[in-house]
């Protein structure tokens, strides 16, 4: 083989490696995304039978924002609340599995992932039984007066947030576990040796060093939770519907493609803005390489 071809190959190699993934993304993500973008600018008076004309109707955006901002805001509110709850549950869990579980580690990991083996829908339906008005949980909460005698959990924001927390918890725990598991225990010893108490060691060493996992987990949790509609649909009431429910209905029930597409794009933009803002703050400097 002559040096020239070797050199050309080496120059092309990285592009060749990127090509399959890029082609896949191109065909199954970029093209549909552009189609969706075009659909969001269709003439809103069009219909399935008459067809839709691309009239660059940017007015679709303010229109859906005005009509559905409560659902949009709710999506972010619920996802944030669920994230907070998931962090409270998930960080200690990931920490315990990674650093304290010993030989139970693998079993516990399987337990974390196990719910993922069943369908999302079935899991959420199971929560309906757990949160049932006549179930043991509501009974217990009524007995201890955390709920009034006619209080309930189903069809309340609490149920939706609990459902979101439960369904997406593994997505938070797994990357967190991975980064906590990698954490060098000698660094913790060093911190103790340098006058850091347990709490200080956690704040100054464990927490910052688990940031990569924490950031990955937070994003993996937050993004799908914001776009979710199954939990609101099954565990909530109309007053808990999230933007996903609206998009679902726009595409499947109302057949209002411009609205559905515009709303999808708004959601995407809003999530992107939150993610970028988050990475700006939490990312760059805190995530060490």
């Amino acid at each position: 083989m002559s040096p020239v071809t070797t050199s050309a190959r080496r120059r092309l190699l990285p592009y060749l490696l990127v090509l399959p993934g890029a082609a896949w993304l191109g065909v199954f993500f970029v093209v549909p995304l552009l189609q969706l973008g075009a659909a969001s600018l269709y003439d809103p008076t069009g219909s399935l039978s008459t067809g839709y004309a691309l009239t660059w109707a940017f007015g679709n955006y303010p229109a859906v924002l005005q009509a559905y901002w409560p659902q949009l805001a709710r999506s972010f509110g619920y996802a944030a609340a669920a994230l907070a709850l998931a962090l409270l549950l998930g960080y200690p869990l990931a920490y315990a599995i990674a650093r304290k579980a010993g030989r139970w580690k693998n079993l516990l990991l399987v337990c974390v992932v196990a719910p993922m083996f069943t369908s999302f829908l079935v899991r959420t339906l199971a929560w309906k039984t757990i949160l049932s008005d006549h179930g043991w949980l509501v009974g217990l909460l009524r007995d201890v007066h955390l709920l009034g005698p006619n209080g309930r959990l189903l069809a309340t924001p609490v149920a939706v947030v609990l459902g979101l927390t439960y369904n997406f918890l593994p997505l938070l725990v797994l990357p967190l576990y991975a980064s906590l598991e990698r954490l060098d225990h000698r660094l913790l010893e060093a911190a103790g040796d340098l006058y850091a108490s347990g709490v200080q060691t956690f704040r100054r060493v464990t927490l910052p060093l688990s940031m990569p996992g924490l950031i990955a987990g937070t994003l993996l949790f937050f993004i799908p939770a914001t776009g979710d509609y199954i939990n609101a649909e099954l565990l909530g009431s109309p007053n808990e519907y999230m933007v996903g429910n609206v998009i679902d209905s726009a595409f499947l029930v109302r057949l209002d493609y411009p609205q559905g597409a515009a709303l999808s794009f708004l959601l995407m933009a809003a999530i992107l803005a939150v993610v970028v803002g988050y990475l700006r703050r939490a990312g760059t400097d805190e995530v060490w390489r």
Binding site: D184, R186, L187, E189, A190, A191, G192, D193, L194, Y195, A196, S197, R204, V205, P208, L209, M211, E286, W288
Partner: peptide
């Protein structure tokens, strides 16, 4: 406890905090 002793250690692996710069590593204690 280790943090209550007037004793400090230079570890075999150094155990420097990778997320802190040199000055902050030194200032840690």
């Amino acid at each position: 406890r280790p943090y209550q002793r007037p004793v400090n250690t230079v570890f075999q692996s150094y155990a420097l905090f990778p997320h802190l710069d040199v000055a902050e590593n030194v200032a840690f204690g």
